[in-house]
Write a protein that binds this DNA or RNA. Structure first.
Lengths: 350, 350
DNA sequence: CTGAAAGCGCTTACAG
DNA sequence: CTGAAAGCGCTTACAG
């Protein structure tokens, strides 16, 4: 900026004004400065300098568990991203992706992107309880909005009534007459383990969404008088189709099941595929429900819980921007809706 | 940092060393400084200060045409993102999403994220020729790597041999005996227009990938003696399923067609859906080919061109990081492969 | 409308 | 191993 000022024969402050406060300069002078800048290949104020001075970065960070690859594999996450980015674009705020694999030691160290990343605030998406990245980010003292995770007792949060919605869809299935019902969850504890869920593991659950949905199913089972022993719960250990399919196959080894409650649509779609492979017809031989209502759910005629994924992203981004602007934050719970389609029916008579 | 230094009874430089050059301090002193910092709620060096001093941000920007929503709707783009983010995570570099809608005046103005965004370099993904955002970014003088777009004559680029691969898959279809072949492209000119492509519009094409693929088809047609008049080309005007489906429906109004060459898998899948709705069976009544080999292509048994989407992202990110590190850049062309599946067959005899 | 000046928070070469 | 100092590029309050 000094070079430009010298070349244009003005003060360095005038150059700054040319970019930031045009009204403080005569039009001719401003024009002159901008022309000189263009000639010298100066593209405008350096972001780092501006940030240091103003304290505003113009970017928000999105914390995602695991690698970004995971996030992009999950259609529900992609919808959420759409909503977030809509708001960001409108507000001229960039979105910085901050992947937080659980194992990385760099999560808490100074070198990592969580500590070093220049952002004005964080959106923490589906972070499991006790994730070290969360503590790192809280320590930075910047505004944080939680999406689908624990609010740590004090953070503003955007989510849906997972437990209630899960109870509702389970009640729908039980209401059709099913008693032998299997349950599929993504992941309760982020340790990569997959397979049947023990009571101890269920108590140790750290992924709030899966935990709450499972709790909702349990609640419906209790109300319907289905005992804990009668229900099998399988954890996929991951969010991708392959893990989902394997979990579904494991669950369907129990041929007495007449229905499967899947905690996500991806799990449900994998269940339908696995059932088809076994020669089972949905819903004649097996009722299947999902959760989220991603685009594929409608195509597969899946009974599921609709949640406003894009809107969730929008609201979270707006909330964060509000907090950054110094406004008061309030928790937001968005409505869900039970969508009954063709993948559920009464159990076949023996 | 000054506050911490005072509280710890050391120089401000010592605090900096505690975070950045541990070996310059005795272990005890470092420990002491870090403890005091934790007590005072200091989370480590301020990113803006560090960036201003070192000139390194620790983030790369990804330029995407249109809104991010578009990008996330496109499975091919999502795969690319996966590859990019893999490299970023490994190198501890954050990925900043920089959407560049064509219409926005802020693209070139000082207030926009393109001018203001703090990054060490840019990845320009599928930017159409002449996009104003590209000029803005070039003006910043930071390293740029182009993916699937024009290299502007001098930028390092990562891509695939679109024209050659398109010629190959077209030759496959023509080799099966098809003569009445329709073509579907996403978008030639980013003006939102959709419908039949005139010669003038084809010449004015600014989306390099679509342009090249179309040129490849044309080349195969010429070799097979299929005249320009015999082929209809329809432009969808967008990348999403809805636009694709509408374009497919428009193309299939011509009932004499026995095959459709779609420039992307999304277009091809939409074509299969549209054909099914019309009561046409694939491939018996209509052969359909795609391009990209996204996950859904295999499920739909689609004949297509496989390109290494994730690897493309990886290579581009690595290349950019190399250029940022001061290394020499070279253009990268990744291999493609014709994948013949069940969506193509000889035309039915009349 | 213009210019001189302070200071945002940091890293590192330098002298001790 | 430690401290004093310069300077990265910027914005804005202040005096003229």
């Amino acid at each position: 900026m000094n070079d430009i000022a010298r070349a244009a024969g003005v003060s360095q402050a005038a150059v700054s004004y040319a970019y930031n406060q045009p009204h403080k300069l005569s039009a001719a002078r401003r024009e002159h400065i901008l022309t000189v800048a263009a000639e010298l290949g100066y593209a405008g104020p350096n972001p780092a300098g501006r940030t240091l001075r103003t304290g505003r970065v113009g970017a928000i960070g999105l914390l995602i568990t695991d690698t970004l690859g995971y996030a992009f594999d999950d259609p529900a996450a992609v919808q959420l991203l759409k909503g977030i980015s809509e708001v960001g674009e409108f507000a001229e705020v960039a979105l910085t992706l901050l992947p937080c694999p659980l194992e990385s030691p760099r999560l808490t160290e100074g070198g990592g992107v969580l500590v070093r990343g220049a952002v004005d605030g964080f959106l923490a998406y589906a972070m499991p309880d006790g994730h070290p990245g969360m503590a790192t980010v809280v320590a930075r003292g910047l505004p944080i909005v939680v999406i689908d995770g624990s609010d740590l007792g004090h953070l503003p949060r955007v989510g849906i009534p997972d437990r209630k919605a899960a109870r509702e869809i389970a009640a729908h299935v039980l209401g059709l007459g099913h008693r032998r019902v299997g349950v599929l969850v993504d992941r309760l504890v982020p340790d990569g383990a997959a397979g049947p869920v023990t009571p101890a593991r269920e108590r140790a659950a750290r992924d709030l969404v899966n935990k709450e949905r499972l709790a909702g199913y349990r609640s419906a089972f209790r109300s319907a008088g289905v005992s804990r022993r009668e229900t099998t719960v399988i954890e996929a250990g991951g969010f991708d189709y392959a893990a989902s399919r394997a979990a579904a196959a494991a669950l369907l080894r129990d041929r007495s099941l007449t229905a499967v409650l899947a905690a996500t649509d991806v799990l449900a779609l994998a269940t339908i595929d696995a059932a088809t492979e076994l020669g089972l017809r949905v819903p004649r031989d097996l009722s299947v429900t999902g959760f989220d209502d991603i685009a594929e759910a409608a195509k597969a005629d899946l009974t599921t819980v609709r949640q406003p994924l894009v809107e969730k992203g929008r609201q979270a981004a707006r909330l964060l921007l509000d907090v950054i602007a110094g406004e008061q934050a309030t928790a937001v719970t968005l409505p869900t809706e039970l969508v009954v389609r063709g993948s559920t029916a009464p159990p076949r008579r023996r």
